[in-house]
Write a protein that binds this DNA or RNA. Sequence first.
DNA 1: GACAAATCGTACAGATGTGTACACTTATGA
DNA 2: TCATAAGTGTACACATCTGTACGATTTGTC
Lengths: 200, 200
Amino acid sequence: MTPKQAARRMRIEAAAYEVLSEAGYNSASLLSIAKRANASNETLYNWYGNKQGLFRTLVESNAREATELLRRAIEEDAEPVEALEALGPVLLALVTGERAIMLNRAAAGDVSDTGTLGQSIAAAGRDTIAPLVRNLLRRAQESNQIECNDIGQAADTYFALLIGDLQIRRAIGVLPPLTQAEIADRAERAFKQFVELFSP
Amino acid sequence: MTPKQAARRMRIEAAAYEVLSEAGYNSASLLSIAKRANASNETLYNWYGNKQGLFRTLVESNAREATELLRRAIEEDAEPVEALEALGPVLLALVTGERAIMLNRAAAGDVSDTGTLGQSIAAAGRDTIAPLVRNLLRRAQESNQIECNDIGQAADTYFALLIGDLQIRRAIGVLPPLTQAEIADRAERAFKQFVELFSP
DNA sequence: GACAAATCGTACAGATGTGTACACTTATGA
DNA sequence: TCATAAGTGTACACATCTGTACGATTTGTC
């Protein structure tokens, strides 16, 4: 893979996001993406196989960046409860952000087709983050900062309080992107409510 | 509108659900729906205008039934807290049910197109239910059964605890339909946590 | 600089969707 | 019973997407 090819790939994936944003998943044909990227559609077919393949790589690279960001937000703090508090705004901004929402819409459109996009999103998203949060909660439990029988259920409750139905409302287009202030508010409230529910 | 026409409409809308279920929103063409219903596509265009129009009526009739169901669940109990407890499983079953999820997927696919489906879902769904819940909470507050500064925020918290990210996970196809037991469990847990957070 | 590989631009066949048109059939109502 | 309205089945023009093909051009490598 030459540097030029890497740049080409970035240009193509940027074009894919642009077209996805303007036209939506159904109307985002490989042809239109190729044109936007000044690339040949034959190249796209060679590289990604088909539309699902292209968007699957989008999901994966997006998730890789996101996971890295979250991992940093968590591991900067040695103190688990503080780490949880720091995680909130970052995670909330990510999952309600424009890119994540567009990819979720794409996955919803792909369910009756291949269903692979949703699987990729879940695998790289929740299935990667939830274990991190469970670890955090386990450490908090061991140092008697929180109290719960079922770590998994506690993690679920945290996600529910933090994210709630924001994602689906963003996905169906009835909720504009959240402002920084809204994100901070909601994350703080979710954290406080979580602590209230699970404090010893 | 003759009875025969009403039956025809029901047949067409049932066909629309069938095709939607099998092929997804993008692939559900008016032509395929017309064929499935043994109807002429010209009739569909006359009656509904276009694809969005057809699915918008689906959303609206589905929401009308759902709201009626919820209103009954609430108003059977004079006691607001009991009504809230009774509402949980009904609401959860509705919003994670196959029809609601298919319509949400359709709305996600329609965002970059007309965006009207999402608006209809929100108008007939959350925007209709939330006021009912807020009324319930206000009554509970007046009889000192719960305590909160902001009714709207409390209602949000209730929805977050009850529904969480189940809808989006159902929509992208990574979560199978919930069983009766799962619905009952989750509703009970959400109710208990809500009470714990907002009891005086 | 020359050769080989990768990529572009364009074209193509086949399939499908949209929205409209029209002759023929069925239902509605006086 | 008969005239009018409504609906069916089929066809059409137009547009678009998919996946493939191929000569021309650019890029990487020796």
